[in-house]
Simulated scan of single mutants.
Amino acid sequence: MQWSPDSKRHYFDSRIALRERVDTLAPRAAEDPDLHLAELVRLHRVLTVRSSVYWEHRTHLFADRVRSLFDDGVRLARRLSQHHPADGTPTLAKILIDRSTFHTAAGEFGPALDDFCQALSYLAEAD
């Protein structure tokens, strides 16, 4: 990331606003999933990716800092998949691949393989 300091600061500072938007949208998605759940899943994924990039080289606690974001993202995507399988199942596969990548980065190869295989099975169902 050969970005200017201002660009980096803006990118990473946006995590705070994203977290607030996710927290605000979560109860709305519970009340009206047709209207809000897909957007909640999308915003949560953006938050997860930005947080992962932020913490990747900042601490040996990288995995501890972002693990819950990946797990929460999978839970949200499962809800979307159950609620709206046509759109939710491919989204769930994508988010499982994200978490598989996280597990690989954290040196957790068994869980990485499990998530990846699960993602492939969902992608096969979607075809």
Rank of each mutant, 00 (worst) to 15 (best):
W3L: 10
L69G: 00
H103E: 15
S68A: 15
G107H: 11
L35S: 12
L47D: 03
A30I: 03
T91K: 05
D6R: 02
S100L: 05
R42H: 09
E125C: 07
L113S: 11
L40P: 05
P85W: 06
Q118D: 09
R21T: 06
L43M: 10
A26S: 09
L120M: 13
L113W: 10
P111Q: 07
L76S: 00
P111G: 12
L40F: 08
H36I: 03
V41E: 00
F109M: 05
F62A: 05
S100W: 08
R75N: 09
A63Q: 10
R75T: 03
S81H: 06
E31R: 10
R45H: 05
I97M: 11
L61N: 15
E39F: 04
L40I: 09
F102T: 13
L40E: 02
G73H: 01
V66H: 02
R99N: 06
L69H: 00
T48C: 08
T91R: 09
R65L: 09
D115H: 03
E39K: 03
A93C: 10
T24I: 13
V41H: 04
A86F: 12
R19V: 08
Y122F: 15
L18Q: 11
R42E: 05
S68V: 11
R19E: 15
L123D: 04
D87M: 09
I95A: 08
A26P: 02
D34N: 15
S52F: 01
L92A: 03
H36N: 12
E125L: 12
H83R: 08
A63H: 04
V66R: 00
A29N: 08
H36D: 08
L35W: 06
D115T: 12
F70M: 01
L43D: 04
A112R: 11
R45A: 06
G107R: 11
S7F: 08
Y54I: 09
A63M: 10
L43V: 06
D87K: 06
S4V: 02
R67M: 13
G73T: 06
A26Q: 13
D98W: 07
D64R: 14
